[in-house]
């Protein structure tokens, strides 16, 4: 039986700390797959101009491609090189929601994320996505400092 760990990436130093901690845990477990997830913040209820709508499909593909090339693939490759089984995903939506959904979908045993770096007004109003994840997750969550 193999274990699965979902790791939230955000392209920052904090994300990499989460990955290296996940790698350590994976080695301790032995037979363990790491699923790296990069979430592009997106809401189906935002307002856009007609022109933005017409370009949306194209932009989405570009966003996914960029995130894959710059953040996810290098991290997956690095893990594989170290001999850890790893895969990567890029999705649009709410970070806390999606990490939990993917963890449930893939039958992961835990989620590892870093403390978020977001701040200011947005955080005061909506709370940090890490805090939201911790409060609503269906699987254990580890927060890396």
């Amino acid at each position: 039986m193999s274990a699965k760990i979902v790791v939230g990436l955000d392209g920052s130093g904090a994300g990499s700390r989460a990955v290296s901690y996940a790698e350590k845990v994976a080695r301790l477990i032995g037979n363990c797959e790491i699923i790296l997830v990069y979430v592009i913040e997106w809401s189906p209820y935002s307002f856009q101009t007609a022109e933005e709508n017409a370009q949306r499909h194209k932009r989405r593909e570009e966003e996914i491609k960029t995130a894959m090339e710059r953040v996810v693939s290098p991290a997956v490759d690095a893990l594989k090189k170290d001999g850890v089984e790893a895969s990567g995903e890029v999705r649009h939506g709410d970070v806390a929601d999606l990490l939990n959904t993917i963890a449930v979908e893939r039958g992961a045993d835990q989620i590892i994320v870093a403390r978020t770096s977001e701040g200011g007004i947005k955080r005061r109003i909506f709370g940090s996505s890490t805090a939201n994840l911790v409060m609503h997750a269906s699987v254990p969550v580890t927060v890396v400092g």
Binding site: P44, Y45, F47, Q48, H57, E63, I64, G93
Partner: peptide, 9 residues
Amino acid sequence: AGEVSHFQA
């Protein structure tokens, strides 16, 4: 997710 939603249109 990430495409134009019905709401947005």
